[in-house]
Design a protein around this nucleic acid. Structure first.
Lengths: 257, 257
DNA sequence: GAGTGGTCTAGACCACACA
DNA sequence: GTGTGGTCTAGACCACTCC
């Protein structure tokens, strides 16, 4: 089925006095409205880039530039060798994180009936950076455990989390100890359960590595957080940095006057 | 000064057994490390794209693809007709938003000694969407004021904020009333001061319009928030959606067990 | 006007998926 | 093998900035 008119911005270049936008923007809009009209259903493939180029009378490079815009916004997903597909419409897993309380990722997911999975990407004992040592109230020579984990929920990668733990405070720890267990539970078991934390949120673009791990395009918006947690004695016990998929994670908080 | 070797990944394609990455990634890394080494100082221009292409032995398109990666990550800023510049190193204005309390943008900025500026982009009375009407506890026929403002701090665009206000509850309101004044102060003055709010945060990529208003590249990560505020009587008084520059805004919150 | 980034093209080859 | 997206090229013209 031929969905598009053969040319863009047909007769009058800017009938309404609008500045004519670049072709790739026009192509992006054309594709977007076709998707919105339901001409391409979620999960279905778009026509191949080469075919779109012919149909729309533009070069393939221009089509790619247009599709790249849609991809970074999460409207479509590209699969090398296979095609470009309309993204599943409603976010299949949308997490709402209640921020009033100090909870772990594992708890969060369980309270929503999702299986909190994960995979340890790396586990090392190392010297923290000067900056991090200060935050954890350590002298630069002291060791920290550095745990890097990929967090999943409902089988889908949701976040990459890196935790720094005060090694001296916790005693011996091995990679097996952090496998498939909440770090909070582990800290609690060793008498270093956090009771207070500061959490900072900001938005960043995914670099190659995070994009690969989370299954999003390079440049996709991620929610980046840093959390510093203290135990009852006021000692810092954990410094955690996490990158959540922007399209799959919501933080919700309650504010009062 | 010739900064780069004339070719990338010179003799052995993958000496350490590493899969050779695309050229534009290599170019991006080359430029990034040159910036990190201080060979290009913040505020200074990079060599022109055409010159980089010649120096590095790649096409200009490839150079552009590499620079695009750096631009979306905020390392460099492109200025049409003028050049590509290394971004100012440390974020010159980094806001930390204390989330424990219900504060307005204006208050936030003042408490940091920054002038909270702004510009009303649009002010209309309109019918809310069904979805929004529900949130504001209105019947679909009732009117809302829709205020769209560009928020600045220290002379720099920081956020685009759109507020929906219950028109019936507030009485007559004109564009002049929302000019240069905190909406919270205005609500307070009309006996609809908010005492409780829910705030949701997520990360999104900037579209053309937001990018233009905020002075960032299309696709840059933004912190998107939606806030629904209630007055003392438990009536919803404001539904606000805002997009903050991800590289200029931090949210910080305190959590307790 | 000279120099810069922004857009666009036609064509090529590579890497991956799938039958 | 065939079809798909991913990368890359050389060259062109446009739009903007700045002198």
């Amino acid at each position: 089925m031929t969905v598009f008119s053969s040319r863009l911005e047909a007769a009058s270049p800017d009938a309404a006095g609008l500045a004519s936008s670049p072709r790739y923007v026009q192509v992006a809009r054309t594709l977007e409205s076709a998707i919105e009209r339901g001409e391409y259903q979620p999960g279905n493939a778009l026509p191949a880039e080469r075919e779109l180029a012919v149909r729309l009378g533009v070069s393939r490079v221009t089509v790619r530039q247009a599709i790249a815009q849609l991809a970074v916004r999460g409207l479509v997903v590209r699969r090398h060798g296979s095609g470009t597909f309309v993204a599943p419409s409603g976010p299949p897993v949308r997490i709402q994180h209640p921020l009033s309380r100090l909870t772990s990722f594992t708890e969060d997911m369980h309270s929503r009936g999702l299986s909190a999975g994960g995979r340890v990407l790396s586990f090392t004992a190392a010297h923290p950076s000067v900056h991090d040592a200060m935050k954890l109230n350590l002298s630069p020579g002291q060791l920290v455990y550095r745990v890097r984990r990929l967090r999943t929920a409902g089988g889908e990668a949701l976040a990459v989390e890196e935790s720094l733990l005060n090694a001296g405070r916790l005693g011996p720890l091995s990679a097996a100890d952090v496998q498939d267990v909440s770090l909070y539970a582990l800290l609690q078991a060793r008498g270093a359960g956090p009771v207070r934390a500061l959490r900072q949120l900001r938005a960043v673009n995914a670099d190659d590595e995070l994009a690969g791990l989370l299954g999003v395009s390079v440049g996709a918006a991620l929610l980046a957080t840093e959390r510093l947690a203290w135990d009852a004695a006021g000692q810092p016990v954990e410094l955690a940095r996490a990158h959540y998929r922007g399209d799959r994670y919501d933080f919700v908080m309650e504010l009062r006057d």
